[in-house]
C-alpha cells in the first residue's frame, strides 16, 4: 500500500501525502455516486404508491384482499445506525492508538470497529431476507427496486470497508503498523467514516421520512 512515486521528491508540492489526497478525491467523487442513488430513491418515492405493495410506511391491501403492513422496522435499523456511528468512534480511537504506537489498543479498537461493521452487514442481511419474506423484492415495486439498490450499494461499501480494515487488523497483529505507518489506517478510516456519513443521510431519508 505504498504506491507513490516520490522519486526525487522528499516532500510533495502541497506537503500532503499523495494517498491521503487521493482518498479524499475518491470520497468527493463518491458523493456524486450516492447522490445519484438517493435521487433515484426520492424521484420514485413521488409515485410508487400507485404500484403494488408492500410500502415502507403505508399499509396496502391487494385486490385479492391481502393486507401488507408497513414494512420498515425502525428499532432494528436504529440499532444498525448506532453500530455504524460507534464504529466511527472506535476507528478514530484505533487510529489514535496506532499513532501513539499502542499496538494492544489499536487491535482492541480496530477489532471492535470490525465487529460493528460485521453486525451492521448482518443487520442488513437479516433486514433484506425479512423484506423478501414479507413479499418485497427488487421486482415488486419501485420502492423495492430503489430501496434494495441504494442500501445494497451502501452495504457493499461497508463490506469492502470490513475487508480493508480486517487486512489492516492482521497487519497490526503482525506488528506491521508502527506509528510511522499509521497513515495506512488513517486512509482506511477516512473511507470508513465516509461510508458512515452516507448512512447518516440514508437513515432519515429512507427510514424516517414518510
Amino acid at each position: 500500500m505504498t504506491d507513490t512515486a516520490h522519486a526525487g521528491h522528499l516532500e510533495t508540492a502541497t506537503g500532503l501525502d499523495n494517498r491521503k489526497l487521493a482518498i479524499w478525491t475518491f470520497i468527493g467523487s463518491e458523493c456524486l455516486f450516492f447522490a445519484s442513488l438517493i435521487s433515484n430513491y426520492l424521484v420514485h418515492k413521488e409515485t410508487w404508491l400507485t404500484g403494488p405493495g408492500p410500502f415502507p410506511h403505508e399499509a396496502w391491501t391487494s385486490p385479492a384482499g391481502k393486507v401488507f403492513e408497513p414494512i420498515i422496522e425502525i428499532p432494528l435499523v436504529t440499532l444498525g445506525t448506532a453500530l455504524l456511528l460507534f464504529s466511527s468512534l472506535f476507528v478514530v480511537l484505533a487510529l489514535a492508538n496506532a499513532q501513539r504506537g499502542n499496538r494492544k489498543g489499536l487491535l482492541l479498537w480496530l477489532g471492535l470497529t470490525l465487529l460493528c461493521g460485521v453486525f451492521f452487514v448482518g443487520m442488513q442481511v437479516y433486514e433484506f431476507t425479512h423484506f423478501v419474506h414479507k413479499g418485497l423484492t427488487l421486482k415488486t415495486n419501485l420502492f423495492g427496486g430503489s430501496f434494495f439498490v441504494l442500501t445494497g450499494f451502501h452495504g457493499t461499501h461497508v463490506t469492502i470497508g470490513v475487508i480493508w480494515l480486517f487486512t489492516l487488523w492482521i497487519e497490526a497483529f503482525r506488528g506491521k503498523i508502527p506509528p510511522a505507518k499509521s497513515l495506512n489506517l488513517e486512509i482506511a478510516a477516512l473511507y470508513w467514516h465516509f461510508v458512515d456519513v452516507v448512512w447518516v443521510v440514508i437513515f432519515p431519508v429512507v427510514y424516517l421520512i414518510k
Binding site: S29, E30, L32, H44, K139, G145, V149
Partner: peptide, 21 residues
C-alpha cells in the same frame, strides 16, 4: 462519471434483475 455509473447500474438492474426504474 459517478452519475453515469449509477444510471448504468439502474439500467443493468432493469435488464438483468427485473426492476422497473
Amino acid at each position: 462519471f459517478p452519475v453515469i455509473t449509477v444510471a448504468l447500474i439502474l439500467l443493468m438492474f432493469d435488464r438483468f434483475f427485473g426492476t422497473n426504474f
